[in-house]
């Protein structure tokens, strides 16, 4: 049975982990909540001996900030666009990969490739693809040296080039670029999980359906999707969590400006807002924003779990 000598040993094994966790995980949970509820808390002033009164002012102020609302809006828009698009694309690709034999391995490898990349580095490549090189300021003496490969392709098919990310670009064009990049980045993980799920579905279900003469579409809707639903729920939930923490992919494309040259911060996100507050030593505001972010992630996760409990077939 459990004796005290064993107990002692277990805690020694756990000691290094617990020491690090206490300082860098447990303490921050309490301290961040504390700072969020101290009015206008600033780390700099606190070290100078200032005291702060208790209250919910940080939350009120954060929610009234135009910049915070714009960050929240950007984050939401990117989530709502990228999660469904990447999930549907990943599902189609995974089902396709699962149905073929020749080339399956090589295609699977290619589709996983974007996972092993650096979001900042490849963001710079995407920026180069969408960027218009030249003195392009939307004025009459604008000079387009090269319109960028994406615009070249658009022109090749007879379209007009779009100012995607440069000075004077539209918000919708910026969001379109971000959506393309985030979906490109999100596909590998989703394909990996969904393909793994597909490969574990018992072949007998398909054989039975085929004997019954069910159509492909019916088999997909009645067998594949229900049996894959736990994996689908998983990639949707992790997709939303990742989406609400979007930040580096935007830095990759727009730089620390977080927006086109004429409108810095236009594409800032919740995480970006938290770091901006931190760098101005407004820890109270940053903490309140982080708790709001946590609350949103919690609600979205619970909502997803609730919906999937009804819909997911285990």
């Amino acid at each position: 049975m459990v004796n005290s000598k064993h107990q002692w040993k277990a805690w020694i094994y756990l000691a290094p982990a617990i020491a690090v966790l206490l300082v860098f995980t447990v303490w921050p949970i309490f301290n961040t909540v504390r700072m969020a509820f101290l009015e206008n808390y600033s780390g700099l002033e606190a070290t100078n001996g200032a005291t702060f009164s208790f209250g919910v002012g940080n939350f009120v102020k954060v929610l009234k900030y135009k910049r915070f609302i714009s960050c929240l809006k950007n984050t939401m828009i990117l989530c709502v666009l990228t999660v469904p698009i990447s999930t549907i694309l990943a599902l189609l690709i995974a089902v396709g990969l699962n149905s073929i034999k020749p080339l399956q391995k090589i295609l699977q490898t290619i589709f996983f490739l974007p996972y092993v990349t650096n979001s900042i580095a490849i963001g710079m490549v995407f920026a180069a693809m969408f960027n218009i090189v030249g003195a392009f300021y939307g004025t009459e003496n604008e000079l387009i040296v090269t319109a960028g490969i994406i615009n070249n392709v658009i022109e090749f098919f007879g379209g007009t080039p779009v100012n995607w990310i440069n000075y004077g670009s539209q918000y919708s064009a910026n969001i379109a670029v971000m959506t393309v990049y985030i979906v490109w980045n999100a596909l590998p993980f989703k394909i990996l999980v969904l393909l793994g799920g597909l490969q574990s579905i018992n072949k007998q279900y398909y054989d039975a359906a085929r004997v019954d003469g069910s159509s492909r579409r019916r088999i997909f809707a009645r067998i594949t999707v229900p049996l894959l639903s736990p994996m689908l729920a998983y990639v949707v939930i992790t997709g939303f969590i990742g989406g609400f923490k979007e930040y580096t992919s935007i830095v990759g494309i727009f730089g620390e400006n977080m927006g086109p040259a004429d409108d810095a911060g236009r594409l800032n996100t919740m995480v970006g807002f938290i770091y901006d507050s931190l760098s101005t030593n407004s820890q109270g505001r940053a903490s309140a924003a982080a708790l709001i972010l946590f609350g949103i992630i919690l609600v979205v996760t619970l909502l997803n779990l609730y919906v999937s409990k009804k819909k997911v077939h285990y």
Partner: peptide, 21 residues
């Protein structure tokens, strides 16, 4: 321990920034 995995890292970073300073 598993429950802490739910919390976004930014929440820790705010305090940790002060701690390491």
């Amino acid at each position: 321990l598993l429950a802490t995995m739910m919390i976004p890292g930014e929440l820790f970073t705010i305090t940790n920034y002060g701690t390491v300073t």
